[in-house]
Design a binder for these strands. Structure first.
Lengths: 196, 196
DNA sequence: GAAGAAAATTTACATAGGTAAAGAAATCAG
DNA sequence: CTGATTTCTTTACCTATGTAAATTTTCTTC
């Protein structure tokens, strides 16, 4: 089972760029499997991020929280995603984005410092890291475009396409927050859509 | 003058990670200086991006445009910034973000394919590219947080801090668009701020 | 399967901020 | 300089969506 998770991670990295077996041998020693029950935080606001995880099972969310405690969902993670306070890991500044399990989850976790220390001797891994950073950037930009150019109903339809089946697994208020509207408004949108 | 621009670029890259002189020798041959009069596009919607530029003089903006032709400014570029349709360059998909000079500009321009071809033989350059991608990601996330957690007046104040002096050089409607409000609303905010 | 909790919907009302258009101010070109 | 253009501000009006609270529905768990 742990082996299977590691295989998923290996396949993911190889999908970015071919990883040499020497590199992988070093890499797989770094990761350990962690169970995260529903509702737990992988990452909280205000402290420095130090770990990265690779989600192999379950659903998680990333969100911001304002002074008054209002939460804004920014992303859902499904199996096969890297999670972690990427900006905080890179800059060393306090983390601003919370990450929480919405179902029971399984993760492969490692210390980011150990991971990135390998870049010096493993150019294939540094390449993977570049491609991953680029992919993260593109994802953020695509989401930004979605938020700017689409109205709430279209965003809802896009959410349904991008996360098939997820709608059934998590509360609607989480989806509303992800769409940038209130549950009230999402309910109005759904009613309107159902009427035709 | 062209030499001076190249020095700026070199300093910028060295600020990311030390660049070997062999790498720089190859690199500087790739770039050529381009003048961009006010109002010209570096990049338009719908076609694939192929070039990157390094802005050495002037101000540019990046923006999205919806079906109806309404524009949404997402970023201003000041000297010392890389510009180009980064997402499109990476993915090969059609570009979605327009980039236009707001004043007369000077740029160092190169073909991205030639630039990235050097990664294979120049790990220092690939490292710079990784750090740049990470930096781009962090910038986007910080801006995202700003848009989510701050109201329009705070965003205006942040704009003034982040782009000192820029306010005087470009029309207010460009700033309003960057802040995500109408010129009407920015005017209301300014009036309110002036009253104390 | 009944009681309680959580989630979703609906309603009534309030309001921030949009649109449109007119007028004032500033800037530019000849 | 001066007329023309562009930019900025203001006003009036309107609508989408927020808030709050009540109601209904769905999900848990004992």
């Amino acid at each position: 089972m742990g082996t299977y998770s590691l295989e998923t991670l290996k396949a993911f990295l190889n999908g970015l760029t071919p990883i040499r077996s020497e590199t992988w041998q070093q890499l797989e020693l770094l990761f350990s499997e962690v169970q995260l029950p529903k509702g737990r935080f992988f990452l909280e606001d205000g402290r420095k991020a130090t770990q990265i995880g690779f989600l192999t099972d379950g659903v998680m969310r990333a969100f911001y929280r304002n002074r008054e405690g209002v939460e804004y969902n920014k992303h859902f993670f499904v199996p096969g995603s890297f999670i972690g306070g990427y900006a905080s890991l890179i800059t060393g500044k306090p983390n601003q984005i919370w990450q929480q399990s919405l179902t029971d989850c399984r993760l492969l976790v490692t210390d980011f410092a150990s991971f990135s220390a390998l870049y010096d001797t493993a150019p294939d891994l540094e390449r993977a890291a570049r491609l991953l950073a680029e992919r993260f950037f593109v994802q953020k930009e695509e989401r930004e475009i979605e938020l700017v150019l689409s109205d709430a109903q279209t965003r809802y339809e896009l959410f349904q396409q991008q996360f098939p089946g997820l709608e059934q697994r998590i509360p609607q208020y989480h989806i509303a927050s992800y769409l940038g509207v209130t549950p009230t408004q999402l309910s109005r949108i759904r009613r309107k859509m159902a009427r035709r």
